[in-house]
């Protein structure tokens, strides 16, 4: 059986967690249908062969480009897929991964399935499941071209979790015309909303941007929590668009989503309804968010937030 190529995303010399999850998905498929799992780093990186092997890779190919070039990275992936005879290329559905998905498909004359949430092999080949209409529905699709490219949404797949050390091989990097010249506004400490395990998200019910420290304090009390926001507060200029969750923002699937002062407009629900556990805190007992919440608390967010933060801190200290 042909091999599977997983294109890794590297930031600050580290492979991103979503790429390790993609390796796990590739491992599952390779175990079922045969073939190897190749991991490709398109930038210079010192790969952790134990971690990548454990997540699912048999071999790690390192193309030592100095800086990320989207077209260069895609050209490297297309060349390597051809040389190695891989018929399936998987990526994490991050912003970079989504961008590479279509480019690699162009180079391989392939169809692509972006943002997949499930992936299975059956008698007819591969079946990809992906949300459409921002999660208001899902589609099962088959890629009908000989080669296929798919990106996998973060937090829907698991690294293989095995004990295995991958081998390493260096391969040449292709040059691109576009290149990343600078990384600005790096957010230290807090993970991005699209990848976080826990999201604390605020809406109009918080009253104004001056009350956001209450939400930040709650996020600080939850290790690994990111901040999210509703479209209303982003449009009002209270919060940056990078935090917006929903149809014209980010689609998220954390283990825990805490919606504070968010009524639950359909565009917002579409972006977060695949969260494992949803907590809603809202003054209005009739707010649509309560129909989607695992646990709801009716009341003033400004009174409830400090109590919740305090209780979490006490629980951790105890």
């Amino acid at each position: 059986m042909a091999d599977i190529l997983v294109v890794l995303e590297v930031r600050d010399g580290k492979v991103r967690p979503a790429s390790l999850q993609a390796l796990g998905a590739a491992r599952g498929l390779a175990d079922a249908r045969g073939g190897r799992v190749l991991a490709l780093a398109t930038e210079a990186v010192e790969p952790d062969l134990e971690a990548l092997g454990g997540a699912g890779a048999d071999e790690v190919l390192v193309a030592g480009a100095e800086a990320h070039s989207p077209d260069g990275a895609a050209a490297t992936a297309v060349r390597v897929a051809g040389e190695e005879g891989a018929d399936l290329v998987l990526l994490a559905a991050t912003i970079r991964g989504r961008d590479l998905c279509g480019r690699i498909a162009a180079g391989l004359e392939a169809g692509f399935a972006p943002d997949c949430t499930a992936l299975e092999a059956d008698g007819e080949g591969l079946l990809f499941e992906r949300p459409v209409y921002a999660g208001k529905a899902r589609m099962q699709v088959r890629i009908r071209t000989p080669k296929a490219v798919a990106s996998l949404r973060p937090n829907f797949f698991q690294p293989a979790g095995r004990s295995h050390s991958a081998t390493r091989r260096d391969v040449p990097a292709e040059e691109g015309k576009a290149r990343v010249v600078e990384m600005k506004g790096r957010q230290e400490g807090r993970p991005d909303v699209a990848e976080a395990r826990i999201i604390v998200s605020g809406g109009r019910g918080l009253g104004g941007p001056e009350n956001w420290p209450l939400l930040e304090a709650l996020a600080d009390a939850l290790p690994g929590a990111a901040l999210g926001a509703s479209r209303a507060v982003v449009d009002a200029g209270w919060r940056p668009h990078s935090e917006q969750v929903g149809q014209t923002g980010k689609t998220v699937s954390p283990e825990l989503y805490i919606a504070v002062g968010i009524s639950g407009a359909i565009q917002h629900l579409a972006g977060m309804s695949t969260s494992k556990v949803i907590v809603a805190i809202n003054k209005d007992a009739e707010a649509p968010i309560f129909q989607h919440a695992t646990y709801g608390v009716v009341g003033d967010a400004l009174e409830i937030l400090p109590k919740l933060t305090e209780a979490l801190k006490a629980a951790q200290a105890g």
Partner: peptide, 12 residues
């Protein structure tokens, strides 16, 4: 462009 955890400046 906004990527996870920062802003990339890209030239082409």
């Amino acid at each position: 462009r906004e990527v996870e955890g920062g802003r990339e400046v890209v030239e082409a």
